[in-house]
Computed example of a mutant assay.
Amino acid sequence: MQLLFEYQELWTVVSEGIVGPADAATTRKDLKARFFINQSLDSVIFEKIAHTTSAKRAWDVLMNTYKGVEKVKKVRLQTMRRQLELLQMKKTEKVADYFSRTLALVNQMKSNGETISDVQIMEKILRTLTEKFEYKVTAIEESKDLEEMTLDELMGSLQAHEQRLDEKSVTEVEEALQIQLSLKKDKDETRKNSEASQKGQNSQNWRGSASRSSQGKGGGGNNTNQKSKSQI
């Protein structure tokens, strides 16, 4: 709106002959430049140049402002470079999750002026995968040129390998459970047989003890009778 008023004032002074054609042309160029500058700024940055009266002054203010922004970007980039350098895949992390985490950090670095190629990203991912991907990484590096691969192709190849490992792990767990159940069943049967055998032995011992006790009582009775007869 302010520029519109300035345009109107410019045409007024030109029409009245106060300003010459050369000065009017220069002023029009300045107003046009300020118009394009204002249109390319958000409301926060626009407040910094709202008081300026020329495109040159507005440009100088923006240069000084973004010098500070560039310093902040450099500090951020140093931090994010360090984060990318230390980035590692977790043992329980899925391939898709690790790709998302890596690409999120890379995109932040790119938005702050860093230049990273897809090959650099793929090399970083291959270097930092867990041990279970060691053979797959070796096969990819030996049989394929990363220059000809895309990030999507690499992720798909690693996900297929991950799925095969998961299926194999599930099968091994099921087999281990079956072995444990079989061992427990055998142990229970052995314990039952042992208990039954022990019960049979105890029963046989009890019968033998009862028989000996009965015979002892009978023999004592006969001696008593004989003794009575001799006395008689």
Rank of each mutant, 00 (worst) to 15 (best):
F5H: 12
Q8F: 04
E9T: 10
W11E: 13
S15G: 04
S15T: 02
A24F: 02
T26Y: 12
R28G: 08
F35W: 05
N38P: 03
S40C: 01
S43E: 12
S43W: 11
E47T: 13
H51Q: 10
H51T: 11
T53H: 04
V61N: 09
G68I: 14
V69T: 12
R82S: 06
L87T: 10
M89Y: 03
K91V: 12
E93G: 00
A96W: 02
Y98H: 09
R101M: 03
A104C: 07
V106N: 00
M109D: 00
T115S: 13
D118R: 02
R127W: 03
T130V: 06
K132Y: 02
E142K: 10
E142D: 11
E142F: 08
S143P: 03
K144Y: 01
L151F: 04
L154N: 00
S157L: 07
E162S: 12
L165I: 03
S169R: 07
T171R: 12
E172W: 08
E175Q: 06
Q178I: 09
I179R: 15
L181I: 05
S182R: 10
D188T: 12
E189M: 05
T190K: 15
R191N: 03
S194D: 02
S197M: 12
N205V: 15
G208W: 06
S213R: 10
Q226S: 15
Q231T: 09
